[in-house]
Write a protein that binds this DNA or RNA. Sequence first.
DNA 1: AACGCGGGGGC
DNA 2: GCCCCAGCGTT
Length: 331
Amino acid sequence: MKNSFVSTWIGWYLDNARDLPWRETRDPYAIWLSEIILQQTRVNQGLPYYLRFVESFPTVFDLASAEEDKVLKLWQGLGYYSRARNLMKTAKIVAFDRKGVFPNTYSELVKLPGLGPYTASAIASFAFGRAEAVIDGNAYRVLSRLYDIDLEIGSQKVYESFRQLATDLMMATKPSVFNQALMELGAVICLPKPICERCPISDQCLALQNKSIHLRPVKKKSKPKERQAHYYVLPITPTGDWILEKRPGKGIWSGLYVFPLLGEGEFNPKSPSFLQLKHLLSHKEMDLHFQIREFASIEDYPGAQLIPKDKHEEIPFPVPFLMALKHWKLL
DNA sequence: AACGCGGGGGC
DNA sequence: GCCCCAGCGTT
């Protein structure tokens, strides 16, 4: 076979694969759940969340019937909260419109909320054995180095060329295993700073030959950072209840609960009672200021909700708000 | 095509 | 600091 280095690669994967729970099943529900959790998220960060989700919601029906706040509380700390909201949308579609049966083709999968080209391909191959190549950050890195490709990542056309390349390489191999091997190499060997000495196919790597590893993949530069400052107050009523706002469906922290916003930008409280936290948020550094206001009344906060004392532990918060609550020993 | 969306880990 | 992560939805 011409592409015999692929069998070397597959052999390396079979011998060295990390022991990951979603690799031991073909249940589309479990695979779908793992793929959504792992979007833009490292395995080590997502794994404990995956385990808690499958325990709390063993089937798609359990997830489809769950309270939104309970799902968001379980998602708390993972980030990209619209993933959790799309997770619930898709769970309801599959459970209630499709009687619990996931679509088994790429073209049907990609229609579901939260499933794009990568995730639809992943589920089609892992759960249904279809020959759909996955192109994620790992695949871009591995393939651009293997063939020393200087195309800039980001356009539809370049995506398609990488997908076609991976599809060609996959031909003689079981699709699910090839896709796993592709991502595994990118995740443990062909890292941004690669460990070429341990790479099973380094003798095939054109970028290594051409000493251009550090130039691959070619990516667009990230934007310069901006600074923002936000000022929040946690109003507490005389009976110890909290007054919180649930964030709207779009934008930052969608669906999570935050303290009412006093001001942002140039607003400066010049008050030492504000707790200041620096928070790194999507390449932007935010200065967050928090304060407690006791003996508050819900009347003063239109659009906010009164959260009874016995519900405080069930409320999903963004991480910086958790930090503030922990600092005040309120949670 | 460009941008917004989190939080964490590695160096 | 900077980069990037089993990407997707919106504009």
